[in-house]
Design a protein around this nucleic acid. Sequence first.
DNA 1: ATAAATTTGCAAATGACTTGCAAAAATTCT
DNA 2: AGAATTTTTGCAAGTCATTTGCAAATTTAT
Lengths: 132, 132
Amino acid sequence: MTKARKALLELLRESKEPISASMLGGDPSLPFDQATIYRNLHYLEEQGFAESFILHCTEHGTERYYSYRSRSEGVHHHWFHCEKCHAFIDLGGCVYQEQMKDWEQQYGFTINDHTFFLTGICASCKSQSLLE
Amino acid sequence: MTKARKALLELLRESKEPISASMLGGDPSLPFDQATIYRNLHYLEEQGFAESFILHCTEHGTERYYSYRSRSEGVHHHWFHCEKCHAFIDLGGCVYQEQMKDWEQQYGFTINDHTFFLTGICASCKSQSLLE
DNA sequence: ATAAATTTGCAAATGACTTGCAAAAATTCT
DNA sequence: AGAATTTTTGCAAGTCATTTGCAAATTTAT
């Protein structure tokens, strides 16, 4: 494991919410070239240490967001993303495993991955906007 | 409604699966500039005639895929995408409305949109690869 | 430690999508 | 219908996240 990878993994593990490459690149504890960041995010995901999804929001544009994933307990989480304050709210571990199995049976395909997330306005931004 | 919009809407309505801007732009029945295609896809989605999601696949890269949506019956569909042959398989209308309501109650946020899709290898590509 | 393999930084390249602007088409007004 | 006004289009250049070639630097294997 190289310095860059350790540092990246550490940041992902600490983070309470998914982070994009640009946010990671801006972090002082990651003084690496963007190419290195991107390459290592791929590496970590490939190795099962991280997972990601692409999200578009009006303000931040389209970016891939990464989060830490323990290689042993492999339950990934789903998220709500607030378009106003950009916070992510953890909706808990994925509960669609059963449904996936059913679909695989029904259609005969093999699912490699699935993407699920919500976007909208979070509770605190809603109350905030009432005060304006 | 301009020619471009009518033609676009027609193609979307005919299509059995979500289509990307580049695929639409390549269609002979849409002899319009790519800027026009993009602008009108935005327009149609804004008006509720279309809906979209961003999907990344190894071979085709990251693109937004659009599909027709009737403005009256507003139930959108979810899809499985085959990474091998690029076909989309319709999983039927969204059945998560209840779950969404629950989450809105539980977390206090307002959901504007949600994204859900599966990726993997379809049945026919699986059997195909057995013959190689 | 020394050689072999992998990773990094830099800079340029990609590719999807966007934008400014003047001409062309659609809509509104009379 | 015909002129005036608004909207849309094509073209070309621009963005922006992400990728890639290559030589130097760091790891890993021996």
